[in-house]
Design a protein around this nucleic acid. Structure first.
Lengths: 245, 245
DNA sequence: TAAATAGTGTCTGTGAGACACTATGGC
DNA sequence: GCCATAGTGTCTCACAGACACTATTTA
């Protein structure tokens, strides 16, 4: 926090200026794969490479507001939809050489979206595509690192929060929820045990109205649930790896 | 990440500049109380108020490097000592009005120190004092918020990391370690159970050489341990509140 | 009928909480 | 002796994993 004791008062131009940006790691689960939203860069450096969407923080807005604005622009989602989404600050990346042009400090955010039927191309944004996590080649800047950090964070948060429901539509079956967990964690889960634990955790999911639905087009229709209100899961739903092998 | 599509190339002065600073939430456990390092402000705004230590990020350094440098300056610890300390990024605070003078984005860091005998006043820093967490009046800027976030983070991390050993000297007794947990969590723990769980968690603590030591100056001398190498605790050591009441 | 998914029940091992008990030091 | 802390043992309950079994739909 200013002041540095020796700072000659507060000439904002005393130091070369920093640019402050936000980077977005936006995920969805599609076809049993974790997908991340990427944009193709149209300018140097890294022209033609893929990168995480993002942009400058404007003078009057916070980084969180900037992230939400950029998310709306890149996804073409309505302002109202984006306003209700779960957007979480991941961490800040500030290596002096992370952008070859100038000093850029970037605050990274993570967002989790259900697999949207909408084409999502709305905005003026350049080419933006959902890409399976496994298929992301080297990204521009330090975005591979940001992406890896974001995935780690999501995996950990799935254990002790109900965040996984953010990947599901408003009403979902327990089979769909389990699919989300298995995709993000990359491990198969025992269905009866998963069911028992989810239903035993207060505030995780609640029964939803509406007729049962078939998860994969086959089999017995499943009851529908919607996201509960609990911020944290008690008890947590631990990864199988979480226990010592 | 730049570019915002419409950004006219990269004139660093196109926008009013952002200042980037670091704020430090540095903790120790002293006399069974969580203490935080505060400095008294010598200039407006908030002249005479207490604040978290911190300062500007310099052009050639990352925020993490700036945090480590500031920590060394404020605590008077040797460069070598500070270099080995656990310093963790907490989050970034970027509300446009958080500093009345100009736009300041601050990256907050958390550090955990053992209760040092050294007077710690070494640096040129102004008045810096350890203050019990309970006695921190309103702090300058949004530092109350940062402090609260830092305490929450520490409490949570104590469950699934061996971070608590950072509050202990190089060799410590299990009684001292339990004291740290009880202080940070604010709950009493069952001694036999605490002991059993700590020793059953691989990599949490390891036996240390040296004669046993009395924890409170009374009673049977206790065996010494040192911090283990495990980054995460398996199984975790959950807070009593973690379970549903 | 077979295949696929949903849902229920049960056994067993592990670990957490509670707490009684013993051991070793200073006074 | 008393007191304070360290350290051990044991009981019980809750929960996680494994897995057998039934139920309901489509093809």
């Amino acid at each position: 926090m200013p002041p540095a004791p020796e700072a000659a008062a507060y000439d904002p131009y005393a130091f070369p200026p920093f640019a402050v940006t936000v980077d977005l790691a936006v995920f969805t689960v599609r076809d049993a794969q974790l997908n991340v939203l990427l944009v193709e860069r149209g300018e140097d450096p890294y022209r033609g490479d893929w990168a995480l969407p993002g942009g400058f923080v404007r003078p009057g807005e916070s980084a969180g507001q900037a992230a939400r604005r950029e998310l709306a622009e890149e996804t073409g989602l309505s302002h109202g939809t984006v306003h209700g989404l779960h957007l979480e600050q991941l961490r800040t990346y500030s290596e002096p050489d992370r952008d070859p042009r100038m000093r850029v400090v970037s605050v990274a955010y993570t967002a989790l979206l259900p697999d949207l039927p909408e084409p999502r191309g709305g905005g003026d944004a350049a080419v933006a595509r959902w890409t399976p996590r496994a298929d992301t080649g080297p990204l521009a800047f330090d975005h591979d690192r940001i992406l890896a950090d974001a995935v780690d964070r999501i995996r950990a948060k799935f254990e002790y929060t109900g965040l996984a429901t953010s990947f599901c539509p408003a009403a979902f079956t327990l089979g769909e929820l389990q699919q989300v967990y298995e995709t993000v964690w990359g491990v198969p889960l025992d269905r009866p045990n998963f069911r028992r634990k989810v239903l035993a955790t207060p505030g995780f999911v609640e029964p939803a109205e509406g007729p049962p639905r078939r998860t994969g087009g086959r089999g017995k229709p499943a009851a529908l649930y919607r996201a509960g209100t609990a911020a944290a899961l008690h008890p947590p739903l631990l990864r199988p790896e979480g226990r010592q092998p």
